[in-house]
Amino acid sequence: MSYFLTQLANGLSYGLILGLIAVGFVIVFTSTGVLNFAHGSVLLTGAYLVAVLQGPVGFWAAVVVGIAGAALLGVLINAVLVRNLAEANPGTAAILMLGVDILLLTELTRRIGNRVLPIGAPWGADVVAIGGVTLPTSRAIAAGLAVVVFGLLWFLFARTGTGVAMRAAAADGDTASLMGIRLSRTGAAGWALAGALAAIAGVFLASFPAPGVGPALAISAFAAIPAWVLGGFDSVVGAIVGGLIIGVVTALAVGYESHLHFLGRGLGEVVPYAVMILVLLVRPSGLFGRAEAVRV
């Protein structure tokens, strides 16, 4: 039983980190219509900044710089590249982001080399044990912080002018624009928010039990794509729930792989996508996505 609970706690905490990344995908997509293939390299950039700066300026200051840097990078990508596309549609924007991803990832790979850069977090390799359940301290903190961040997001979207403007722009850009909402501003805010969330997720993904910052960190953002999709493409709540589902399902599939051998080896990689396809078969627009019902 405690084994099950350990795997569950592990899956939930990982799922909350995935949620942070998936929410970034949602916000960029709803605010500017871009499928952000460069999200992983933005995440890696944030984590890289933290790892490089934590020595000279200390961990917490480095985290602030990392978050600000990733947010700024997002804003710049949007302002300099996305808004200057020769023809703006989701297909070209997605490929543009692939180009950006190649640039960022190549440069970061060159800088990092085959080192693993320690993130230097004060919680190190500690674990917390409650009853028979053990969880790395970094994961416990990540889970708590993610919940706080999601609460702040709710406050932002429900209670502040900027948040309401962003929601309005996401719901119907043209109408929002007519009502005086500047789409360029809501877009920039979306990219900044997504970059900041990615950097936070990056710090925790590079913390124990992972070794530190390496180029492979960029790929971990892709693990959030099934979470985003099954939650519904345009729903922040869906992204969080999707992250939790994917996190738990993956942890359980790996934890009980020895009982599931008839499904083949290496289940952890395929299970998130299998769950995603199953959900889409039942609900084509995801768990919380707006149904695209059209009456004729």
Binding site: Y3, T250, Y256, E257, S258, G268
Partner: peptide, 23 residues
Amino acid sequence: IVPQEITPRDTDLTAQASALQQA
């Protein structure tokens, strides 16, 4: 032997480690 297959993308082996401990 208790086998656990992973991919190069897995950098957090908490689930695998727990499974090994359980075994």
